[in-house]
Design a protein around this nucleic acid. Structure first.
Lengths: 329, 329
DNA sequence: TTGTACGCGTTATCAG
DNA sequence: CTGATAACGCGTACAA
């Protein structure tokens, strides 16, 4: 900046005013400074700017698991919104580890992000709440519900889509419906478990088979094998995530069970390719891109002084040929 | 830091020395300062540190398309390595737009990243080379080959896997093999096109059907419809990416063509779920996680003073039931 | 081994 | 409208 000032023959503070678009600067001044800036290919230093102004124009994003394709979609949505507001995104992965989440939170504090998008791996981590409170910037949770947290959140209405799915299965005649669920430490799984229980409470003679575990193909495989080994085996299986679905599919294949003749199949969370399986897999779809843009919007607005807010986005059951009537006993 | 110094009754510089692990500091001093740091929950400010030291401990990652699941894998690999070196990742999306790539590059310069992982959308962009030269930090290209670029790169040996695939198809008796390819503006597509041509050059009577387009399901669909409408239709199709594969599958389904009876199918790039299609799709697999860790390692080493280096990672053809002998004419 | 003083590149305040 | 200068939080040469 000093060089620019010298070349333009003006004071350093004038250069600053031109750069930051200060209103009180003459056209002549603006022109001279801009010329010098072009000639020297000068670009202001974001670090110094943020040291001075306090704002880094950076939003952190801590994901429970980056490698999940769902994350890529959410991140894309967030990036679109952030870009529109001239913010950048600092990404950190938690590898599904609660302690790592806390560590990454401290990192975000250290880097002075202006706000944070957060999808924790374990909402019940007792030390988490204190760490969250301590953060000096607004935080928007993504599909998570942490006790005592008072900030913003973008949530999916998992119940709605699952209720549709269960109602469909019941009406088809299924009397034993399994949910191979993810970790009980996060909201989506808990919502789904509660929804299944509630939905079948008054459905006479329909039994829920609930398995809580983790978001992995390995777990999906093991749980499905176990379920199918029972004498009273479920006639419908709902997979609690994409990774789990992979395990369920593998298990069904190994057991030579056919969909939907031997077992009807539903997947929570959509993937484009699922419609090309044979039969296509019924899904409980949501709009991850919208989750991302919404989440980004919520933090940015909060940075701008708005009050924390929670937004709930719809889910929808998409039935395909993977749901059929159960075979006669 | 001032507060810490006052509380510990020492000079600010002593606090600094303790934090940065300077060797010449007495045990007594270290203890006193650490105590004050704990009590005040002091954390140094990364912005000020980097303004002073010149290093931000941040690596940028510009992806041609974040929403591609392949990116999620590469990013995960990169994050593992970066974390090990105590670096953070600043992510930017280029939405497959060449101009946006340049814009994001300037952003990275503005943010003073220490290094960059880059996957451009268009290697032939005439303005790109100049911008790359201008960047004051090491850059590692990810599966890209920009003319005149002299930095590091992590490349996939697309030829190897594709040669295997083509050899397999030829030996099965296919005489007309189509490649529904992605954009010719990036290395993977060009490598694949060249490989197909080369492989069939000396295979008497075997005709390559090459279609260059873009990485999208829409293009995959249109190209496949067009190929299959010809009087001499190909008996084998190789999809140039996951997105393209989705279009190919849709087209085959709409045309009521069966795999592998009517047409054999191969996909470049793997997805876990492809093995559950019916029949499972043959893939040319690579290790995206390794690409990420390798790429991160290359930039970090270059930051450490090492010379630029190119690394080529293997690809492997995984044959499944989606490749079979063509029907008799 | 510890303390003093300066500068990193900006912005904001204030005086002119 | 413009210029001089302090301060943002930290690292480091240098002196003590």
């Amino acid at each position: 900046m000093k060089e620019v000032a010298e070349r333009a023959g003006v004071a350093i503070s004038s250069v600053s005013r031109v750069i930051s678009g200060h209103p009180d600067v003459s056209e002549a001044m603006r022109a001279r400074v801009m010329k010098a800036i072009e000639e020297l290919e000068f670009r202001p230093d974001a670090r110094a700017q943020s040291l001075r102004t306090g704002s880094t124009h950076t939003i952190g994003f801590i994901a429970a698991d980056i490698s999940n394709p769902l994350f890529a979609e959410i991140a894309t949505g967030a990036e679109i919104e952030l870009r529109a507001w001239n913010y950048s995104m600092l990404v950190a992965n938690a590898f599904n580890d609660a302690e790592l989440v806390r560590e990454q939170l401290l990192l975000m504090e250290h880097r002075s992000v202006d706000g944070l998008l957060l999808s924790v791996s374990d909402e019940t981590d007792p030390e988490l709440q204190a760490v969250l409170q301590r953060m000096p910037f607004p935080i928007t949770l993504i599909d998570r519900d942490v006790r005592g947290f008072t900030g913003s959140a973008v949530l999916s209405d998992h119940a709605a889509g699952l209720e549709e799915a269960v109602a469909c299965l019941v009406s088809l005649g299924h009397r034993r419906i399994a949910l191979v669920n993810g970790s009980e430490k996060v909201r989506p799984s808990r919502e789904r478990a509660a929804t299944l229980r509630r939905a079948l409470e008054h459905a006479d003679g329909v039994v829920p088979e609930l398995r809580m575990g983790e978001f992995s193909a390995e777990y999906g495989y093991a749980a499905t094998r176990e379920l199918m080994a029972k004498s009273a085996r479920p006639t419908a299986v709902i997979a609690g995530s994409n990774q789990i679905l992979m395990g369920v599919l593998q298990a069904l294949r190994d057991l030579a069970l056919t969909v939907p003749d031997d077992v009807s199949l539903v997947s929570c969370d959509d993937l484009p390719v699922l419609s090309f399986l044979d039969p296509p897999v019924s899904t409980i779809a949501r709009d991850p891109l919208a989750m991302g843009t919404q989440a980004a919007q919520l933090v940015l607005e909060e940075i701008d002084g708005a009050a924390p807010k929670s937004v709930v986005l719809a889910t929808e059951f998409r039935r395909t040929a993977s749901c059929g009537a159960p075979a006669a006993p």
